[in-house]
Design a protein around this nucleic acid. Structure first.
Length: 357
RNA sequence: GGGUAGGUUGAGCAGGUGGUGAGCUCCGCUGACUGUAGAUCAGCCGUCUUCGACUGUGGGGGUUCGAUUCCCUCCCUGCCCA
């Protein structure tokens, strides 16, 4: 029964297995229902910054079992342009992907393009990584771009800071600004058919994390991101931050999304801490660089010892690589700089991680 | 047979016209990568006892205090002519 006063949101989250009451773990399962299909959580979202998960096409994504991917607001606004994508029917049609899409706001580029941006209260000015031209990003612009792209889930423009490279004052300032920008993103939202997630910051300072969690949780977002982690912190520091955030959200019905985390063991710990959603370039990037994930650890297929190895990368793996090819063949493809290496290796690592979830 | 240009660390080069050639690019070896300025980046890549030292410019000989450089000779390669 849909209330007139509380119209149905485009994206809803239902917890299917709550964490046990004994407190042994905060892990849970759920279903995130989107206009482009249901997403079972915990979920890993492959990253497709430029409207493509590098080296893969949508058939590959379906085959590996992806139900939701991430695309990037900043990159697509610069190229090919969000208005062009809108004219071409939106991001799903543009890239031929009928599953769910979450768009990152470009906030991360505040960190990753650190030497090429100036930030002020109103927004951030980037020097384009493509042609050097100045690019102005504000919370309102990031919201408008994401509405033009038509992703299922938009994310607030935030200001993350690298925890160890930042003073407490810098973390506090960036976190407070992230809160003000979150309000502006909410106010700027026009489309009723797009979900919006807010981002909790606070670095590694427990009180700042807690304050940020309370402030963001009080806003009417469809989900809550946990930002500013998966950076230069240790696993223990990250867990400590999650153990501040998640208990404060114990009775909150919304999904929790830890941005940027991608290694299987890191994700395992974060799921235990109560996180529902993840994304990272890690599995795809290390795959392109020759590192293949297997249950025993990892294999660097550029190592000489694989040149005569007839075994599959992972015995019994269902992925495209392991079904049809040997380690020796993949090792050859990498040495010959053949493009197929990137596709096969990426298929494997993403299959490994998605099956791991 | 004559002429000519060459022979530098796996390959390809740079440099060096008498005063310490280990420099580059490939190849090769290893590592890193976490909301993608990343099919990228870093280290190593003659030998050793590796913060240093030694050896190394086709072979042999000569001149010289000193030769990769100059001279003689031999070998090898490309090209041209017979």
């Amino acid at each position: 029964m849909t209330s007139v006063l509380a119209p149905a949101r485009p994206v809803t989250f239902r917890i299917t297995t709550p964490p046990p009451v004994d407190g042994a773990t905060r892990a849970r399962t759920g279903v995130l229902a989107t206009p482009h299909g249901d997403v079972r959580t915990p979920v890993f979202q492959p990253v497709g910054t430029n409207a493509t998960v590098k080296a893969l096409d949508p058939d590959d994504l379906h085959e590996i079992g992806a139900s939701i991917i991430l695309a990037n607001t900043y990159h697509l606004a610069l190229r090919p342009g969000h208005e062009r994508i809108r004219r071409l029917g939106g991001l799903h049609r543009f890239m031929g992907w009928d599953g769910a899409i979450l768009t990152d706001s470009g906030g991360f580029q505040v960190v990753s393009l650190g030497a090429m941006r100036r930030i002020d209260e109103d927004g951030a000015t980037f020097r384009s990584h493509i042609d050097g031209s100045p690019q102005r990003f504000t919370p309102e612009h990031a919201t408008a771009v994401q509405e033009a792209l038509g992703s299922d889930i938009a994310v607030c423009c935030d200001q993350p800071v690298p925890p160890h490279a930042s003073s407490r004052a810098e973390v506090a300032d960036a976190t407070a600004r992230t809160h003000r920008w979150a309000e502006r993103c909410l106010a700027a939202q026009v489309r009723p058919d797009q979900a919006l997630f807010g981002i909790i910051q606070g670095g590694l300072e427990p009180d700042l994390r807690a304050e940020s969690t309370r402030i963001l949780a009080a806003m009417p977002f469809d989900g809550l991101c946990i930002g500013g982690l998966a950076g230069d912190e240790t696993a223990e520091e990250r867990r400590a931050a999650l153990d501040v955030v998640v208990p404060l959200l114990a009775d909150d019905p919304r999904p929790r999304y830890l941005m940027g985390l991608g290694s299987p063991l890191d994700i395992l710990d974060a799921v235990d801490a109560g996180v529902d959603m993840f994304d990272s370039v890690l599995p795809a990037r290390v795959a392109r660089n020759g590192t293949l994930w297997v249950p025993e650890g990892r294999l660097n297929l550029r190592n000489a010892r694989f040149l005569d190895d007839p075994a599959p990368v992972q015995e019994g793996c269902r992925c495209r690589l392991c079904r049809g090819f040997s380690r020796a063949y993949l090792a050859h493809l990498f040495r010959a700089d053949e493009l197929l290496a990137y596709r096969l290796a990426t298929c494997h690592n993403l299959t490994f991680l998605l099956d791991f979830m």
